[in-house]
Design a protein around this nucleic acid. Structure first.
Lengths: 338, 338
DNA sequence: GCTTGGCACTCCGGCATGCAGAGTGCCAGG
DNA sequence: CCTGGCACTCTGCATGCCGGAGTGCCAAGC
């Protein structure tokens, strides 16, 4: 186990390195933090920390920089979450309050988070797996052409065109609409299939094929839209990444464009509480020099989606975590209101 | 006026520079293109071209690179549009054919365009200004709470929550729904306001306030959604931009995040035919070293939106223009089918 | 046994020098 | 008007040098 002072030294190294972006040496450390020991002592501690794998030197006779393991220890044991200032809190609230619909909420959130953390922000749309159906609408566009509209309790609307095997009458359609709604409104997506299974039986044989088609499309939409979408922003902040640009930034941009990658990333995070994945802890190769701070958010106590930021492993963890947590809370509130 | 050969020299310079990214000298020119004159002659021509402002040298005794004006001349007079190969065409068609809804079409288009051109792609959602209403739906969620759903002929769906000043009965609602649809379905957005203006008069005084609220929300949605949205992709291609990274890429990323900027950019382009804006021709400062190639696309003969790519002024114009044009055509086809 | 000051060593970064290569401009001759 | 030749300029690269910062280790001190 590391002694108290050595932990203190590690904390100091992380803080300084995050601030200056340069390897930090023993002398500078003793000057900037009032450790009450001499540089030589600190050097011994640093050697020990290096043996344990918490820090490393880029080259012999350079200062030390934290390793992923070092950051991990820092985040777990040494750093708290820095709360936002109250002006910041007010700004968040004001900014989010202006949103008019779900797209707008997500858009504003992503911009806000990017600004606050000065990093790349990722916000997942509220997931539909735990959502319930608010309304199903069927519109006859042409004799054998329908549009299915699905409205969820999170305010999301999805539509699908349906080509029917046979024309369907307006009254049958109204009937179907009514029955459908009486069965599924307020129900969770996962419940829907079993609830509508026997619906065709209530109708004339002529219409059953069409009705089956409609139901199939509905189920398909439910499944398909369970795949989550997300929005990202603040990519310009990547330019503040480091000195060795193209090599670092390229894979990150590529990863960010692959929504699948990001969804997996967020998916791996814990459902509740904040998750910090540091450097190589992220499976994806392109993100091995980035950290991801993410947290679930939701309208109630249950998290319906996640949001977070992607930044260099050398980031201000307490500040970032504070911002992420605060934003998630306010978004949750906004969603609960609407 | 420039002589035939000087134009030829300019073309050669542009082509070589685009290929090599390095200033091109007189000797290399005569070798790689079979100009039938000596380097010395080319030097004279180059001096003339430089006087006219078509090319410039980064430093004394370096080769020449084209200026914005040089690219302009190249695009206008010297370069054609390079058609895609037929495998490429088939790939486009196949890829776009798999799309399931509008979001998917736009998403696929943007990825496709980014891949084909290896640059940043921008695709505007079909504009609603020229769109017509396919259906308006009103759903009672609670006694004094409605949801308005607007479906357009381009397949877009927009929804708004409405808090009514007074509860409204289900029959009144149905009546309103029917009247509303009979008036506005098939009409252009711009026509709607005058068509619904006198609707409240047909109802009881009790309900008029609510109905006015509904209509106001509808009009608001029409106006608001006329503001176009867009999708971008391929930002990772920015890393192939040039050597002087952070300075160049940063403002571009920032510009790309500001949808307003991009919309303005596309808006400035001609409604029909391809538009190429080179370097400083783009008003936006951050884009002064980029070119934008854009073209309108639409389901019929009328363009309903634009798409294009953003890349370095040093780009393969014929190839890029070919890809942009081809993609626009296929997207138009896809939209026409659905 | 931990801490400390001292000392030799290493390595990076910046700076000046030198040199080859590529390119230009200009001139005089065909 | 084209061409070959020539002197000149500038970049890019390799080399060498030096100062600074930092380390590791050792022996002395608390």
């Amino acid at each position: 186990m590391l002694s108290e002072r050595r932990l203190e030294v590690l904390r100091a190294i992380v803080q300084d390195y995050v601030g200056t972006e340069e390897p930090v040496g023993s002398k500078a450390l003793t000057e900037r933090h009032n450790l009450k020991v001499s540089p030589a002592t600190v050097r011994n501690d640093m050697a020990a920390l290096e043996d344990e794998g918490y820090i490393a030197q880029p080259h012999t006779s350079a200062g030390r920089i934290p390793t992923d393991k070092g950051y991990r220890l820092f985040v777990d044991k040494l750093a708290g979450v820095k709360p936002l200032s109250s002006p910041e809190r007010r700004a968040i609230q004001n900014f989010l309050d202006g949103a008019v619909d779900l797209d707008d909420v997500v858009g504003r959130t992503v911009r806000l988070l990017a600004q606050l953390t000065r990093q790349v922000a990722v916000v997942q749309y509220p997931s539909l797996t735990r959502s319930t159906v608010r309304h199903v609408e069927l519109l006859g566009l042409a004799p054998a052409r329908l549009m299915l509209v699905l409205i969820t309790d999170t305010g999301r609307v999805e539509q699908r065109l349906i080509d029917c095997p046979a024309p369907i009458g307006e009254t049958v359609l109204a009937d179907l609409r009514a029955r459908l709604n009486s069965r599924v409104v307020g129900q969770r997506f996962t419940e829907v299939p079993s609830l509508v299974q026997d619906l065709p039986e209530a109708f004339d044989a002529d219409d059953r094929a069409t009705i089956s088609t409609v139901l199939a499309t509905l189920l398909e939409t439910l499944v398909e839209e369970t795949e989550e979408r997300l929005m990202i922003g603040g990519t310009a902040n990547l330019t503040r990444f480091g000195h060795d640009f193209p090599l670092t930034i390229r894979p990150v941009l590529e990863a960010l464009e692959e929504q699948v990658v990001l969804l997996k990333l967020l998916g791996e995070a814990k459902d509740s509480g904040m998750t910090v994945r540091i450097g190589h802890e992220n499976q994806h190769e392109g993100l091995s020099s980035t950290s991801v701070v993410s947290v679930g958010y939701g309208s109630g106590d249950e998290a319906v989606a996640k949001l977070g930021v992607v930044g260099p492993t050398r980031m201000d963890y307490p500040g970032t975590m504070g911002a992420v947590r605060a934003v998630a809370r306010y978004v949750g509130q906004i969603l609960a209101e609407s």
